[in-house]
Design a protein around this nucleic acid. Structure first.
Lengths: 234, 234
DNA sequence: ATAATAAATGTATTTTTTACATTCTTTTAA
DNA sequence: TTAAAAGAATGTAAAAAATACATTTATTAT
């Protein structure tokens, strides 16, 4: 008997769906990535992005948040989707699609004991060891996206403590863009955006004079966004 | 007996993986979207983005290209991934993840008979009927991405015929950005980029005088990209 | 008291963006 | 053949944004 149209379009194959997360931090003047040892075969034990299979009753995004919390103890973290990696041969074990997210965390907030207990490790972004499967490609794509994104949205703030100094912020942008910025121009541009609130405190850890601390002004930033402003730094 | 670590991290659940494609075209001064009637339950017969399940031995990208060719007859089309849609409840039938791509096609190239035979239909972007499942959200996201992307990469050319006039190109950007542009400034900016090749032909379909036809200079564009130039129009 | 150190500040120049009005080429109709 | 019509093509001045660049300031440690 001929196939009916319903037969033709009936789904046949199921696949595994995983999520992997690029967890970025900023510390010691350097951009860092958190990785751990892969927990499943094949390639169990090799360095890997932090990830997990997605449960059947769970949003993909939820799954990413679950695994992030599991490893770092952090919730309410900035996270966006980078994209899906779906090459047929990307995982030699099972046919698995991975949906990759990137998260930006304040590196002093995470639960160090928990991270250690999972065998996770922070690497300087230039010293990340070879990663399993197509995770190197994910990292390269994620870095490109982070650099692109940082130009138009103030996601840099997600990587800094609540209170930060302008030189710290400048250093962060220098690391992201991989070039030196002029202090006067950077400060001028940034202050002109009116999204920083100057505090009455100084951070004296890096100079005798000390640098004033600032907070990010979320309200003003929302206003700025609505008015169609193109937030562009450096 | 207690679960071993391998048990804990053994994948358990499989899901369906689909791909849906936002197929954009530009015709008659308007941005258009190609949609068809959904071929699978539930909601069979409702308007839907053009999509298909991904076969087990097929890259996700391949699957998208397969379905695009199946409906339009087109190959070698500009296509990029928008992202994965993975809410647990997005499809009330099966647990299905959809990976969405967007394609830009030259609207005169496609196979009209083939499109008709699949019950597919072009809608003016402002008159797209309600779409099935979360496809409305995909369209809204895709439009935003198209608008963003058009600012920094000359993807507009993918929507125009090989030979086009500057007024046509301007009209396209006006439709994408949803605002009028100044003809003198647009032309000046565009020509200054040196990525247009002026031809010795005119298109007289829209005026008595006729407008010169141009081609896109892919080689120069590649040079421009490598030199780090930020291609930004309007 | 002073030496040391990073933080903070202003201006002139260049580049880019914006605003704006007229002339040109060709066809069609009188 | 001439005039009218219609979109295509062009230039310049003003405003805004980005860049280049050097000195002074606040504080701590010696």
């Amino acid at each position: 008997m001929a196939e009916t149209i319903v037969d033709l379009y009936k789904p046949s194959d199921k696949m595994y769906v995983a999520t992997d997360c690029l967890i970025f931090g900023f510390d010691d003047g350097q951009l860092k990535l958190l990785v751990f040892k892969r927990r499943v075969e094949p390639r169990r034990g090799e360095w890997s992005l932090i990830g997990s299979f997605v449960n059947l009753d769970e949003d993909v995004e939820e799954a990413a948040k679950r695994v992030l919390a599991e490893i770092t103890g952090l919730e309410n973290v900035f996270m966006e989707q980078l994209g899906a990696y779906g090459a047929a041969e990307r995982d030699p074990g099972y046919r698995t699609i991975s949906i990759v997210q990137y998260a930006l965390i304040r590196i002093n907030d995470y639960d160090k004991k928990l991270v250690e207990s999972h065998g996770a490790h922070w690497f300087d972004i230039n010293e990340v060891p070879e990663l399993v499967l197509d995770h190197d490609k994910m990292l390269a794509d994620g870095l490109r996206e982070l650099r692109r994104k940082a130009r138009y949205q103030p996601i840099g703030f997600e990587l800094l403590p609540e209170k930060f100094t302008i030189p710290q912020l400048q250093k962060l942008y220098e690391v992201i863009y991989q070039k030196e910025l002029d202090g006067r121009n950077f400060r001028k541009k940034l202050l002109s955006l009116n999204v920083l609130i100057k505090l009455d405190e100084k951070d004296k850890s890096t100079s005798r004079r000390g640098a004033f601390l600032y907070k990010f002004d979320h309200k003003n930033y929302q206003k700025l966004l609505k008015s169609g402003y193109n937030f562009e730094i450096a």
